[in-house]
Computed example of a mutant assay.
Amino acid sequence: MTTALVLIDAQRNMLHGPDAVPAAPRVGPALADLLARARAAGAAVVHVQNDGGPGEPDEPHTPGWELVHPPLPGEAVVRKTAPDAFAGTALADELARAHVRTAVLAGMQSQYCVAATARGALGQGLDTVLASGAHATYDEDASAHAISRAVEEDLAALGVRVLPADRLPLTPQTR
């Protein structure tokens, strides 16, 4: 079964500058490592890019909207306007074209786009893996760390495999 790394909203507004997520110094390198390992293994890579509204930090074609990791030739970019990257996009088609059965998810924000996309992946019948340590969010009613942990627990209860990002095997034929 083919594996894909799906990088969700790894955009400059979330990972760089004064308004980055609190865990950016830790999560940024974890995302870069996952991406490098996926590329080296020949796994499929899909970059998901959120299109924010006018005046938002991720408004299209603004510095904050730019992807932190520029896609290489052959890597898909899927733009979205809803939290679930499968909703109204070509993500399912991109993964089907690459014969993907396992989607490894990482990126921003844990309780919004990451969680919604994980549920969407399950709904597509994909073996869904969340890369622990490679997703993050902002502080809200709880700390960003607590929110991310709660998301991992909730998704695991739904059938998402939660595995440490630094120990994920990223190969084209992984289960």
Rank of each mutant, 00 (worst) to 15 (best):
A4C: 05
L5M: 07
L5G: 12
V6C: 11
V6Q: 14
L7E: 02
Q11I: 02
H16W: 10
P18W: 04
A20W: 08
V21I: 15
V21A: 14
P22E: 02
P22S: 10
A24G: 08
A24K: 06
P25M: 07
R26D: 14
R26T: 15
P29M: 01
A32M: 07
A36P: 00
R37M: 03
R39F: 01
A43D: 09
A44P: 06
V45P: 05
V48W: 11
Q49I: 01
Q49R: 15
D51T: 01
D51K: 05
G52T: 08
G53Q: 07
P54R: 13
G55L: 09
E56F: 06
D58E: 13
P60Q: 03
H61V: 00
H61G: 07
H61Y: 12
L67I: 01
P70A: 12
P70V: 12
P71I: 12
G74F: 11
E75A: 13
E75R: 12
V78E: 01
T81P: 01
A82N: 12
D84G: 06
D84F: 12
A85T: 09
A87D: 11
G88M: 05
A92N: 09
A92Y: 07
A92T: 08
D93K: 11
L95T: 00
A96V: 09
A106I: 07
A106V: 03
A106M: 10
Q109G: 11
Q111G: 14
C113S: 15
A115G: 00
A118K: 00
A118Q: 03
D127Y: 07
D127G: 10
V129A: 00
V129C: 03
V129Q: 03
S132P: 01
S132H: 10
H135Q: 05
A136Q: 04
A136H: 02
Y138T: 12
D139E: 06
E140Q: 10
E140C: 06
D141H: 15
D141S: 07
A142T: 03
S143D: 07
S143T: 12
A144I: 01
H145P: 04
A146K: 00
I147H: 03
S148W: 08
R149V: 15
A150I: 01
V151K: 02
V151W: 00
V151E: 04
D154V: 10
D154E: 14
D154W: 04
A156W: 06
A156D: 02
A156Y: 02
G159Q: 13
V160R: 11
P164E: 08
P164Y: 07
P164H: 09
D166H: 15
R167M: 04
P169F: 05
P169S: 03
L170C: 10
T171M: 04
Q173W: 13
T174G: 14
